[in-house]
Lab assay of single mutants.
Amino acid sequence: SELMNSSKLIRMLEEDGWRLVRVTGSAHHFKHPKKPGLVTVPHPKKDLPIGTVKSIQKSAGL
């Protein structure tokens, strides 16, 4: 199965306009000026399962 580095996923979010608002432990929480909701990324993780990545991307509207 495909894995993604959390840094790469965070870069994709930031390029889309998401900004880090809070860190709780290894959970990084992002908000967007125009899009609704809060997106949480486990970080640092070298090997996020593709299912997790897809669900984060979906929440972020990517």
Rank of each mutant, 00 (worst) to 15 (best):
residue 6 S to L: 03
residue 41 V to D: 00
residue 10 I to R: 02
residue 57 Q to I: 15
residue 34 K to G: 08
residue 32 H to S: 02
residue 32 H to V: 00
residue 42 P to I: 06
residue 35 K to I: 03
residue 54 K to A: 10
residue 4 M to Q: 13
residue 29 H to N: 07
residue 60 A to C: 03
residue 4 M to T: 11
residue 1 S to F: 04
residue 30 F to D: 01
residue 50 I to T: 13
residue 44 P to K: 03
residue 62 L to I: 15
residue 42 P to R: 04
residue 44 P to G: 05
residue 4 M to S: 11
residue 54 K to H: 07
residue 61 G to C: 06
residue 22 R to G: 14
residue 34 K to T: 15
residue 42 P to L: 06
residue 19 R to D: 08
residue 8 K to A: 15
residue 7 S to I: 10
residue 57 Q to D: 02
residue 17 G to M: 03
residue 61 G to K: 04
residue 49 P to Y: 05
residue 49 P to G: 09
residue 50 I to W: 14
residue 54 K to P: 02
residue 20 L to A: 09
residue 49 P to V: 04
residue 27 A to N: 14
residue 24 T to Y: 08
residue 22 R to K: 15
residue 42 P to V: 04
residue 7 S to Q: 10
residue 62 L to Y: 02
residue 18 W to D: 00
residue 58 K to M: 11
residue 42 P to A: 05
residue 5 N to V: 09
residue 44 P to M: 04
residue 29 H to V: 14
residue 51 G to N: 15
residue 46 K to E: 15
residue 15 E to S: 08
residue 39 V to T: 04
residue 23 V to D: 07
residue 1 S to T: 13
residue 30 F to L: 06
residue 52 T to E: 09
residue 57 Q to K: 11
residue 48 L to M: 08
residue 6 S to I: 03
residue 20 L to S: 06
residue 52 T to A: 08
residue 35 K to W: 03
residue 29 H to P: 00
residue 5 N to Q: 14
residue 22 R to Q: 13
residue 57 Q to R: 09
residue 36 P to E: 09
residue 11 R to E: 14
residue 60 A to S: 05
residue 30 F to Y: 10
residue 3 L to S: 14
residue 28 H to V: 12
residue 50 I to Q: 10
residue 13 L to C: 02
residue 25 G to E: 13
residue 43 H to P: 01
residue 43 H to Q: 03
residue 41 V to P: 00
residue 2 E to I: 07
residue 20 L to Q: 06
residue 58 K to I: 12
residue 24 T to R: 10
residue 39 V to P: 02
residue 36 P to R: 12
residue 48 L to R: 01
residue 39 V to H: 01
residue 12 M to I: 11
residue 28 H to M: 07
residue 29 H to D: 11
residue 30 F to E: 00
residue 53 V to M: 04
residue 41 V to T: 02
residue 21 V to I: 11
residue 44 P to E: 04
residue 50 I to M: 11
residue 30 F to K: 01
residue 48 L to D: 01
residue 22 R to Y: 13
residue 50 I to F: 10
residue 31 K to V: 09
residue 37 G to M: 04
residue 49 P to E: 08
residue 41 V to N: 00
residue 27 A to F: 15
residue 56 I to R: 01
residue 3 L to P: 15
residue 46 K to S: 14
residue 12 M to C: 08
residue 28 H to L: 06
residue 42 P to W: 03
residue 28 H to R: 08
residue 62 L to V: 08
residue 38 L to S: 08
residue 21 V to P: 00
residue 23 V to G: 04
residue 45 K to V: 15
residue 55 S to Q: 14
residue 23 V to P: 03
residue 47 D to G: 08
residue 42 P to Y: 05
residue 20 L to M: 07
residue 38 L to W: 12
residue 15 E to P: 00
residue 7 S to L: 10
residue 12 M to D: 06
residue 46 K to R: 06
residue 5 N to K: 06
residue 33 P to A: 09
residue 20 L to T: 07
residue 10 I to E: 02
residue 39 V to E: 01
residue 53 V to L: 06
residue 9 L to W: 03
residue 14 E to A: 07
residue 36 P to N: 09
residue 7 S to A: 14
residue 60 A to N: 02
residue 20 L to F: 04
residue 28 H to K: 06
residue 60 A to E: 02
residue 62 L to C: 06
residue 32 H to P: 01
residue 52 T to P: 02
residue 61 G to A: 04
